[in-house]
Amino acid sequence: MMDVAGEKNIDVAYVAHLARLRLSEEETAVFQKQLEGIVGYVNKVREIDTTGVEPTAHGRSVQNVFREDMAREGLTTEEVLRNAPAQRDGLFVVPKIVE
């Protein structure tokens, strides 16, 4: 067994922040325990000897699936803003971004 990722090392709070999920303390604790179990299980894939084995990205892989460079009409501004949780003056509104 490799020791890259001992399942005890999962930092659920860090990962939840990367995924932009706010977790309560209780949730963090529950997920911590469950993930340790699940990660402990999926470590199985690292037991296999995969020397010389190429990864598979899809069931069936083809290549060079291109689209011709031709512009087409999309949606109207009104159509898409109808779905917006907040909008003003043709823009999607979000809380002020501080850079």
Binding site: R88, D89, L91, F92, V93, V94, K96
Partner: peptide, 12 residues
């Protein structure tokens, strides 16, 4: 992103 006094707006 466009920035205003109390909010920001996004033009895609």
């Amino acid at each position: 992103n466009l920035h205003f006094a109390n909010h920001s707006g996004v033009d895609f």
